[in-house]
């Protein structure tokens, strides 16, 4: 083999314009490391899922998806003691115990994100069209821990749970209970409850109609009734919009939002944690 005179290194024998290419071998440590990586790769491909054939599993049968249940089970086992305590405790007991309360807040937040945000928003802020804000201080069915818990567990106006909160806002115009003109007078009266009426005569006519048709549920002055889920009409919060057209539509065609029952869907302990979390969003009331 020909050797380069200057460096003493063997040449490849290739020559361009009088320049000969040197054949400089890789350092041995480098080469051996390279071989080790090849062996490592072969072993790896044999043991672990690497090729998209034969079910894409290696000899060990290990997959990331397969490892997930075990990991979930570990997390569940780690939480089991505190979850058992929450399961056995009443809501006031959970509130009185810092450890249970902290766990309920964290677990409630996670359960809320997974189950409730679709309708009630990420921070419980609700959405227009009948999805109430859970962070404000206006509650249709009650804002105490117990009331919130019952609403979550049984749901509202559903056929699944016999204990579901139930009530019916009649379709006053559609069912012929009021004429459209009378419904307009009632709307004018409802607006007057928040000092927004523009037609005093219509509002006065509406007052009489309100007393006969609406006051039994919504109260004489529109203060609402949580026992039947009749919203307050004399405050700044409107579930379906508070302008004249929206109120007119509510009177004429009725309203009736639904919510699924969560008992049976979620663990009893998770429902308790949700109640604690929602109660703490800002509007929670004392028992």
């Amino acid at each position: 083999m020909e050797k380069d005179a200057v460096t003493g290194t063997a040449t490849t024998g290739h020559e361009w314009d009088g320049l000969k290419e040197l054949n400089t071998p890789l350092p041995r440590w480098w080469l051996y490391t390279f071989y080790v990586t090849i062996v490592f790769a072969v072993v790896w491909v044999a043991l672990y899922p690497a090729l998209p054939i034969w079910g894409a599993t290696g000899i060990t049968g290990w997959t990331a998806r397969g490892a997930l249940p075990a990991e979930m089970e570990r997390a569940r086992a780690a939480n089991a003691p505190i979850m058992a305590r929450i399961n056995a405790a009443t809501l006031p007991e959970i509130m009185a115990d810092p450890a249970m309360r902290a766990h309920a807040m964290a677990g409630g937040r996670a359960a809320f994100a997974a189950n409730c945000t679709g309708c009630h928003g990420a921070g419980g802020q609700g959405a227009p069209g009948g999805f109430p804000n859970l962070a404000d201080d206006d509650w249709i069915w009650g804002g105490s821990l117990a009331a919130i818990h019952e609403t979550i567990a049984a749901g509202i106006r559903n056929d699944e749970n016999p204990d579901a909160r139930n009530s019916l806002m009649p379709r006053f115009v559609a069912d012929g209970l009021l004429t459209p003109a009378e419904a307009g007078d009632v709307t004018e009266f409802v607006l007057s409850l928040t000092r927004r009426a523009t037609n005093t005569a219509a509002a006065e006519r509406g007052a009489t109609l309100f007393e006969t048709n609406c006051a039994s549920c919504h109260g004489d002055r529109g203060e609402g009734n949580r026992d039947v889920g009749a919203p307050r009409l004399n405050d700044a919060i409107w579930l379906y919009g508070g302008d004249r057209a929206a109120i007119m539509r509510s009177v004429a065609l009725g309203r009736g939002g639904v919510m699924p029952p969560w008992s049976g869907r979620l663990d009893p302990a998770v429902i308790k944690m949700l109640a604690v979390y929602i109660h703490a969003l800002g509007g929670g009331e004392a028992e």
Partner: peptide, 18 residues
């Protein structure tokens, strides 16, 4: 500051931030 919701309107018309 809570960003969802940015603020909450209360029944009496007040505004609350959390």
């Amino acid at each position: 500051r809570d960003r969802a919701p940015l603020y909450v309107r209360l029944a009496d018309g007040g505004i609350r931030n959390t």
